[in-house]
Amino acid sequence: MSEIPTIEINKETIIKPENLVYKPPKTLFDTPMHYCPGCGHSTVHKIFMEVVEEMGIENDIIGVAPVGCSVFAYYYMNVDMQEAAHGRACAVATGIKRVLPDKFVFTYQGDGDFAAIGTAESIHAANRGENFLVIFINNAVYGMTSGQMAPTTLYDMVSTTTPYGRDPKIHGHPFKITDLIAQLPGAVYVTRQSVHTTANVRKAKKALRKALEIQKLNLGFQLVEIVSNCPSNWRMTPLESLKFIEEQMLPFYPLGDLKVPEGI
């Protein structure tokens, strides 16, 4: 019986380039993000930049960041970007894509931007079939202005402008704009994802990649809604906020594809 050589397993033997399984993408600037602890915005920034890096399109993509917590997205995403007025991202993106049809174009919008102040721009861009991607973060609250009702705020949900809970008789109903846009012929890929578990982060990333691949085929408007959290304005810990997504948000905003182009 021959002697089996013993290999000592330690940090040095594991931390080698060939053993790397995950590192943050280079397309994300190596700078702390201003988002609150546990905020889904940062997760989506990260996975979207991973997709851009994996597809090797860093030099061929232009983003639009309008008003909301993600107004500073251009400080984190290392790609060419334009900041837009509140709600106007889809109009700005239309201007960009129409003059640079060979580039990838995306907007990164919150629920206030995409589904309240910018509803006309959003719906008409979708209806024209503008060939760009909207990443729509739905956290059911106005984060940047510190916790007012959003169009997507759930029934009975407390916000600073619905302190006794959202009452549809007073405040209207939660707005499923993604379902509405799925009805439009110009919108070709419409999906609702989340980033509240590891498995969902993986799925959301796949959806973002699929959207850009559809954009490459010049098929039409792509909408990826991401049901996200806002621990600070929900008055919860990050972990409690993930539970709230699972238990309260997802029954009202169910995950999955609403529309996928044939053959994709």
Binding site: K16, Y22, M33, G38, H41
Partner: peptide, 8 residues
């Protein structure tokens, strides 16, 4: 969320 972790 904050892209703090690298894994081998």
């Amino acid at each position: 969320p904050d892209a703090c972790i690298t894994v081998y």
